[in-house]
């Protein structure tokens, strides 16, 4: 295990949130690496310092203010909502979903049948507004892993943030194919593999060699 990977796993190691396999690997690394051992000790001290912060008492007046505010919320209306025998609410409860469903189904149907556009042709000169947040969809079909994305990632942190736990599934053996595929979608993963994936995942880990 490299220091880079060990450093990333130290927090989860302290919290007992690693698999037995990873836990052993971190433990073995710490036994021989004084630098990572120092990081481990310092991280443990941070955790202890946080957990020993003095607990605070909520000021008593909080509930009084909450109570004052929630009494302003029309409580009766909320109670009526549960009472399905009230005809007005029952009527609304039926009509609103029906109206929404009708709008969603009928308009495309009319457009399709009559071949007309009820709202005018879409303005093709305007590009669709790009989402500010990357929206990747992972296809975890063996043997290839593909990432489709509507955005780009400025750093491995950003990618990791979005992919979350799926990042642990990515394989270095698939890196080259995935990078090529990703680059077609404006996503350059090469630096990220160097920095992160190659460190975190290894063939031994996946295939138990």
């Amino acid at each position: 295990m490299t220091c880079n990977m060990a450093e990333r796993l130290i927090s989860a190691y302290i919290d007992h949130e690693l698999s037995e396999d990873d836990r052993n690997r971190v433990r073995q690394h710490l036994a021989v690496c004084s630098s990572c051992m120092a990081t481990y000790t310092a991280t443990l001290e941070v955790k202890r310092a946080l957990s020993s912060m003095t607990p605070t008492q909520c000021p008593e007046c909080v509930w009084e203010k909450v109570e004052r505010q929630i009494t302003l919320i029309p409580f009766d209306r909320e109670m009526k909502r549960d009472d399905s025998t009230k005809p007005a609410w029952s009527f609304i409860k039926l009509v609103i979903p029906a109206a929404v469903a009708g709008t969603l189904i009928v308009i495309p149907l009319v457009q399709a049948l009559l071949g007309i556009s009820l709202f005018g042709a879409p303005d093709k000169s305007q590009p669709p507004i790009a989402s500010s947040k990357p929206n990747p969809q992972l296809e975890l079909t063996s043997p290839s892993v593909r990432i489709h994305t509507a955005g780009t990632f400025s750093s491995s942190d950003a990618l990791e943030e979005v992919l979350g736990e799926n990042i642990w599934l990515l394989e270095p053996t698939q890196a080259s194919g995935k990078a090529a595929n990703a680059s077609q979608h404006g996503l350059d993963l090469r630096d990220i593999y160097d920095d992160y994936f190659m460190q975190v995942t290894s063939p031994e880990r996946r295939y138990g060699r």
């Binding site: 450093e7 990333r8 130290i10 927090s11 989860a12 919290d15 949130e17 990081t39 310092a42 991280t43 001290e45 941070v46 955790k47 310092a49 946080l50 942190d157 990791e160 943030e161 992919l163 979350g164 736990e165 799926n166 990042i167 642990w168």
Partner: peptide, 20 residues
């Protein structure tokens, strides 16, 4: 996801460690 939690705690503690 749990992976994101793991990442946030790792990065958060790393930043705290540097200061504390």
């Amino acid at each position: 996801s749990i992976g994101t939690v793991r990442s946030r705690i790792h990065r958060g503690r790393r930043a705290l460690r540097e200061r504390i």
